[in-house]
Design a binder for these strands. Structure first.
Lengths: 123, 123
DNA sequence: CGCTCGAATCGATATTGTTCGGTTCGGGTC
DNA sequence: GACCCGAACCGAACAATATCGATTCGAGCG
């Protein structure tokens, strides 16, 4: 495991620490587990697009059908549909079918927290 | 403004609402302002990458120098450096130079909140 | 100064994400 | 059933990001 580290890095660590091998091991252990990272990535990737952020900002005060979101985004139907699908796949949004229309809503208030925190973050 | 909407969408809204023009206008006004969306996007794009998420997870309990992060990620120096630059540009991370080394740390506890919320979100 | 080393930048290439016309699907109406 | 309409899906063209070797930069040292 620790022997996959490039020699240059090992040498650096040898200068930095008394027990480079121990430090190497603890550095490896610092790595977050894959499931945790996967969950975080799923969410952040879904939020990392202007259209999708605008959809969520529009859904803050209630559900809307796909055709209305089309107006808010001012984008073609197929484009809006694919973004809605990504948001749904990421578990950020839920849909409800009523007759010919499909209504979308934010699935969890935690999403609103994410939007709020991100908005303020870079002061 | 409302006349840029495709005719098909207008027709849809005419069937959905009594005053399609009013609804159209309020839909447009639902659009979040650009500054707000920009701020949110900057943050989410910076977080939408596995390497960068792993860096932040590693920085949870204190600062680390670039060469140590290289070990945590098990990635080449230039790759790590470019990710650190993106995190810094997004205002998520701060750096501090000490001699030949550069130490990075999370710049705001709000970042930790984002990581925590995202991890739990998709239950 | 000349040298070493950690970090930053450059740039060509590879990978991933986005757009959107065309088509299909599913419900509703007559 | 035939038709209409909103939404979903497909896939090819295009755009944005990521990767990483090579080079440069900048601090420390002899």
């Amino acid at each position: 495991m620790t022997d996959t580290v490039p020699e240059s890095t090992r040498q650096t660590l040898e200068r930095l620490y008394e027990n480079p091998d121990d430090r190497l091991t603890s550095l490896f252990e610092l790595g977050a587990d894959d499931e945790q990272v996967d969950a975080q990535l799923t969410v952040f990737k879904a939020l990392a697009n202007e259209h999708r952020v605008r959809i969520l900002d529009a859904l803050r005060d209630g559900e809307m059908c796909a055709c209305e979101l089309q107006v808010v985004l001012d984008a073609p139907q197929s484009t809006v549909a694919s973004h809605l699908r990504e948001l749904k796949d990421a578990g950020i949004v839920r849909k409800r079918r009523q007759g010919k229309w499909t209504y979308y809503r934010i699935g969890d208030t935690a999403v609103l927290q994410l939007l709020d925190i991100a908005e303020v973050l870079d002061e």
